[in-house]
């Protein structure tokens, strides 16, 4: 499984929407029903599962799946 797919599978665990149905424009809060706690624990899981470091301030600006994926990819490259 490639990293992007793993990322979407992780999002899917939190919202019960199959990874293949997630789209870039989906909002974590409005479309996927994330609350503050689930979003922050999702970020923690991202760090642990992919062994990356997230900048909390940057990560908190994320609102959509697409933004999260772009940010995730940028951290994976570092």
């Amino acid at each position: 499984m490639n990293k992007e797919r793993e990322f979407l599978e992780l999002v899917s665990n939190y919202c019960d929407i199959p990874a293949e149905n997630l789209t870039r424009d989906m909002s974590f809060r409005e479309d996927l029903n994330f609350n503050s706690l689930s979003f922050m624990t999702f970020l923690g899981d991202l760090e642990d599962n992919f062994d990356i470091e997230l900048e909390e301030e940057e990560a908190l600006k994320i609102t959509t799946v697409g933004e999260a994926l772009d940010y995730f990819n940028s951290r994976m490259e570092e």
Binding site: S36, L37, M40, T41, L43, G44, E56, L60
Partner: peptide, 13 residues
Amino acid sequence: MQNVQNRIYMHCN
């Protein structure tokens, strides 16, 4: 308050 809580949530394991 929300900022404080968000910081805590990320470390609530």
